[in-house]
């Protein structure tokens, strides 16, 4: 019998993007489904699911908190974006970037979210400027550690130095578990095979990736085998995925505010094809993590050409796996 962990379960409603887009599921349905799996922590992308974003009407807020009560759920995280280039021919100035972050902090605060996901391209300098506002609105800012970045690379090290320098308890990380992709997603490779990729090349690429061969070498090798764009695309995929040892998270545990439990394909036996969650969760337990593991399904784009996407069943399976691994 596993000891019950203090890690909490949640769902990023991004997971249901396909059914939501097709109007098969409303925002309320998404919240209800997540909660029905015992995943009570709700993560939302304002631009995706809040009509009238960035404005929040009283009517929407009343509905939102009503749903939370009805389904015994809690708002946890809003995923923010920094639209650097929304103006024609000009990039946002630093002051405009700061105002954009403040807007999202206020938005999260009104929704009752205590954390925002800060998009990976946000600079450490901007985080430092925003920290006093994060404190003012009592919303923690977690920079998303998204593959191919990982928590120990130069960009994240600069972020960590800023966290240490400011000593702000409002600056931290949101690691995306896509960083622990041990095998390339099968759904991704099968999609490329359907588009005409060569089976032998796909096998070479997936095996080389699993062995840890550098992406540069894989791409180089495939270039020597073929010039077909679709085959080169198979090789190029290895640049966007990464596997690092999850123990790299341990020194940063007190700075980890939230976790994106990315997944591509949950199998019938309730394991993930690419990401070894058993390894990941052991590390999180060891480090005493007590925030949310937030399901983030991203397999729909690879299978929608041939199958009807069932994000709900995919999330159900992942949450069932978490229950087992967390000893619930």
């Amino acid at each position: 019998m596993r000891e019950k962990s203090s890690i909490k379960r949640g769902v990023s409603l991004y997971s249901f993007q396909e059914e939501y887009f097709l109007r098969k599921m409303s925002l309320e349905d998404c919240i209800a489904k997540a909660a029905s799996f015992g995943a009570k922590g709700i993560e939302i992308i304002g631009e995706q699911m809040v009509p009238g974003f960035p404005k929040l009407t009283d009517a929407f807020l009343e509905q939102w908190f009503g749903w939370m009560k009805k389904y015994d759920a809690v708002p946890v995280c809003h995923d923010m974006f920094l639209d650097f280039k929304k103006f024609k021919g000009k990039i946002l100035s630093k002051e405009e970037q700061l105002q954009s972050i403040i807007r999202d902090l206020q938005f999260a605060n009104k929704l009752g979210c205590k954390v925002i996901r800060v998009i990976v391209s946000t600079s450490p300098e901007l985080m430092e400027l925003a920290a006093p506002y994060a404190e003012k609105y009592d919303v923690k800012m977690g920079i998303e550690v998204h593959s191919p970045w990982h928590i120990d690379n130069a960009w994240m090290k600069k972020h960590y130095e800023t966290m240490e320098k400011t000593k702000s308890p409002y600056l931290g990380f949101i690691p995306d578990m896509g960083t622990y992709t041990k095998r390339l997603p099968r759904v991704l490779i099968e999609n490329l095979l359907r588009k005409g990729a060569d089976e032998k090349i796909a096998t070479y690429v997936t095996e080389a990736y699993e062995k840890g061969v550098l992406s540069e070498y894989i791409v180089g090798e495939v270039r020597s085998m073929t010039s077909k764009p679709i085959d080169l695309m198979v090789a190029e995929q290895t640049r966007f995925y990464s596997y690092t040892n999850p123990r790299q998270l341990l020194p940063y545990m007190d700075r980890i505010f939230h976790i994106h439990a990315k997944f591509y394909e949950m199998l019938e036996d309730e394991t993930e094809y690419s990401i070894p969650y058993e390894e990941v969760i052991e590390v999180l337990k060891l480090g005493g993590y007590n925030g949310y593991l937030s399901s983030e399904y991203e397999g729909n784009r690879h299978i929608q050409d041939v199958y009807e996407v069932d994000s709900v069943e995919q999330v159900r399976r992942q949450q069932a796996m978490f229950k087992k691994l967390l000893g619930e």
Binding site: F81, D83, K85
Partner: peptide
Amino acid sequence: LLIPYVLVGPDGQP
């Protein structure tokens, strides 16, 4: 669609 939060290339175009 110009994705305003993903800048690419040496000039940082969306």
